[in-house]
Design a protein around this nucleic acid. Structure first.
Lengths: 287, 287
DNA sequence: ATTATTAATTTCAGAAAAGAAATTTATTTG
DNA sequence: CAAATAAATTTCTTTTCTGAAATTAATAAT
């Protein structure tokens, strides 16, 4: 009935009733979607510490006639986006009534799964990387802009020199010119990635800046050395993708960063708080 | 140092090598941490569609001598996180109790509680109100600005005439002057509410505009007739308040609105999608 | 205190999963 | 084209998981 989706989609669809070994493969492939085209089935098995037999069964369970078939499909769709998704969403919008509990379930799953899958050393690498940076660039275009904005609002509370890209209506290259090898960049690339984003990432890489990518499972960010990829599940119960898990992860990331920075950031938070109360930006309960 | 970990922590520790049935229980308990004290082992089994035997084994695998022991431990440790004052937060930050599983639990609780408490007729009133409006104003200052921005990004996909306040560096009254009685306003007032916000709300009320407030539980928005208050839990596990639930609620609200608007919004979404692909703002999986 | 009731654990047999090895299929090389 | 090699799949066996039923422990009622 349903259109055969991308590999990641198929995995998520069946994730809940996969046995342990297959789940290991699932996790591996969600984390590294390219692995399926880059490695042999045997190598995948090895990396997931699972037998070759299990690997074969895994791809069969996903509905592929064979591993090769899955690999081929992935290779073809790899550069190509998922073509049918939009139509499917419209269909769902038109016919399904929105159901809060369904939404809740989906959201909680996004959260739980995203956080479950998070490698704690990735997280702490990200924190160290952001802490060490001289200037910190926060980048997000289109739908990712509010997310970037949100992250910046958190970051600016705990350390100085946080810059947004894009900003106002200013031309990006002019602003971006001042990036240096001692800087770090927090890049939001959920769902749609514009060429502007690609350009920036490339330039930042050339400038030698470290990067933290916030991505969904479907995408494959570049991974230069010393960059970190934080993946979020963004499945939406209806028309829209959900950045909820990404937001949540940012809160955790920033809290960790604050903790890592220690007294410096505490002092900064205090100062901000005191300025606020000077200005009487109320925390009172009435509006 | 730390006592035996919290339930959620233990679950996450072992999650990766849990068999399927136990994972069902794990998911259930991560999503509803209170379930372990509120229900019997048999009831948990039932809710996770798993046998009682599995439930027993599950808690044993987690290292508890028995289900009862786990329940007792949860009851003692389990009082859910209360909002803390600034000082307490600083203290916690300084003493570095950053724990992913705690964050997760707090976030899921925020989500679940926020959505559970939502009166469904409030939701649909909000939808109708936003659907009927001629122009739609989205308002959020300070920390609420990214949220407002995010909401606007969703709304503009499904209907025209969405205005942000504040915008750019423009003076608010000048922009705001064009509000009319046939307009509606979506107002974000989580945590800190500035005087600018109060002013706007007052003026909008005088102009006769309908309003949807997104507020936390601590605050008491004004409630003129025909306005709706959507409350969100924003308790953070660490330094920062968490707008996660608010984000999620906005997604639902906007999806419902899209559904309510029907063909109009579908058409609009299609147009947007097609413009995107014209411009080749890629949905490709590479960066 | 004894019994009745309910809840949790253990036992046990059948089902599912997983790996090793055998087999088949594809690919390379002579 | 055949043989050799490599890769994927199946088969077969062992191990792990699971639920039903039996057992034991806890709680309530008399």
């Amino acid at each position: 009935m349903d259109q055969k989706g991308r590999l990641a989609q198929r995995i998520l669809d069946r994730y809940d009733d996969m046995p342990r070994g297959e789940r290991r493969l699932a996790d591996l492939l969600l984390e590294q979607p390219m692995a399926v085209v880059e490695h042999s089935a045997a190598r995948l098995a090895e990396r997931a510490t699972v037998s070759k037999a299990t690997t074969t069964r895994f791809f069969q369970r996903l509905g592929y006639p064979s591993f090769k078939a899955a690999q081929k499909a992935a290779r073809e769709q790899g550069a190509d986006p998922q073509p049918m998704e939009f139509g499917a969403r419209m269909h769902r919008l038109a016919h399904h009534q929105m159901d809060l509990s369904q939404h809740l379930q989906s959201e909680v799953q996004n959260l739980v799964r995203s956080i479950e899958q998070q490698r704690s050393d990735d997280m702490s690498r990200a924190v160290r990387l952001l802490a060490r940076a001289e200037k910190l660039w926060v980048v997000g275009f289109g739908d990712n802009y509010p997310l970037a904005h949100f992250a910046r609002a958190l970051l600016i509370k705990i350390r100085p020199d946080i810059r947004m890209i894009p900003i106002g209506g200013f031309s990006v290259p002019e602003e971006f010119a001042s990036i240096s090898a001692s800087d770090a960049m927090l890049v939001f690339g959920l769902s749609r990635r514009t060429s502007a984003l690609r350009n920036i990432v490339r330039s930042a890489g050339q400038a030698g800046a470290r990067m933290v990518f916030v991505a969904d499972y479907a995408s494959q960010p570049p991974s230069p050395t010393e960059s970190v990829v934080l993946r979020c599940r963004t499945v939406g119960a209806s028309v829209f993708d959900s950045p909820t898990a990404a937001v949540s992860l940012m809160i955790y990331l920033c809290a960790s960063l604050a903790s890592h920075l220690g007294e410096t950031s505490i002092e900064r938070l205090r100062r901000i708080e005191s300025i606020h109360s000077d200005w009487d930006d109320g925390r009172s309960s009435d509006w």
